[in-house]
Computed example of a mutant assay.
Amino acid sequence: PTLELVDIRSVSEIAHKAGALVICDNVFATPIFSRAVEQGADVVVYSTTKHIDGQGRALGGVVCGTRDFVRKVLEPYMKHTGGSMSPFTAWMHLNGMATLDLRCRAMADSALTVAKALAAHGKITRVIYPGLESHPQHALAMAQMGSGGTLVTFEIAGGKEAAFRFMNALEIAKISNNLGDAKSIATHPATTTHQRLPQDQKDLLGITPGLIRLSLGLEDADDVIADLEQALMVA
């Protein structure tokens, strides 16, 4: 949730020298902003539940690789384990791809606008967004993705209690662990996606009690900002 980037090209060069395959989970970056294969990755995986579906309708995932990898490695595994997507889910997610580019670019534009607004708010102690120049990997994000992506993470003063008051007061953004949806989604990583991590690991990763991950949807950015501001008033 702290939106750290991996230099895919550099990692791929190191891995390939050692004879290793590079598998890239590209779900946060999306296929719109990250061409991981062109940057050296051998296999790219996506949770199609996220941006590709775009409406949180069904669970799914895809593994993208060479024909040789799919036929010799992936296909035998799938045949023995039975982990295949239903035809109806595949149809829904394929339909989602028709608007994927439009949705991701609109979400990323909103994310940058929202990140700038949050950075200027007195109750926010930290804003993490690769599209901001304040992000330590901003240059890498621009070179590798050309965008900061659709997610913004920020920390609210007051810890868990303030974070929960904030989330419960939201009227536009929904509370969920999902992301990449047409609707904006707020997540409290410390008690949901990363709740099983020991506290020392959370501290190491910067997952604090006041940390919120916001996945921007397709709402007007000004409406989202107004919603965040009214919720921060009671945080």
Rank of each mutant, 00 (worst) to 15 (best):
I124H: 03
D101C: 03
V152M: 03
H121C: 08
V70Y: 05
D25M: 04
A115W: 01
A141F: 07
L100W: 07
L59T: 13
C64I: 15
L94I: 14
I124W: 04
R35H: 14
V63K: 04
D68L: 01
G65W: 01
Q55R: 13
Y46D: 10
G96I: 11
T48M: 07
T48F: 00
E155T: 15
V70F: 06
A139N: 10
H80N: 14
V27G: 02
R105L: 10
L132N: 06
N26Y: 05
G122R: 04
Y129L: 01
Q55F: 06
P136E: 09
A119V: 05
C24I: 02
T113S: 06
M142V: 11
V62T: 14
A111T: 04
L100C: 07
G61A: 15
I128N: 01
T30N: 07
D109L: 02
R35L: 09
G40N: 06
A58M: 03
G83R: 07
G40T: 10
G149P: 12
K72M: 12
E133V: 06
G61L: 03
Q39K: 14
L102Q: 13
L21A: 04
F69H: 10
T99Y: 06
V114T: 09
A36N: 08
L151P: 11
E38C: 02
G56C: 08
L94E: 15
D53I: 05
S110Y: 00
V127S: 00
Q144T: 13
H51M: 09
S147I: 07
P76N: 05
S86E: 14
I23C: 01
M78A: 15
F88C: 01
F69K: 05
T30V: 08
T125M: 02
P76E: 05
L151H: 12
I124N: 06
R35I: 07
R103I: 08
A90E: 15
T81E: 11
R35P: 12
R67E: 15
P136W: 02
G61C: 11
V62H: 00
G96T: 12
G148L: 01
L74V: 14
Y46K: 04
H135F: 07
E75P: 00
L59M: 08
L112G: 08
V27F: 04
F69M: 11
V22F: 01
R57L: 14
A36F: 10
N95V: 09
M97I: 05
R67T: 15
I128C: 02
V27I: 08
T99A: 08
H121W: 06
Q137I: 05
L74D: 13
T153S: 15
A111C: 04
G146V: 12
M78K: 10
H80L: 14
G146C: 09
H93A: 09
L100D: 13
D25E: 10
P87V: 09
T49C: 03
S47T: 15
I124S: 05
A120F: 00
V63Q: 05
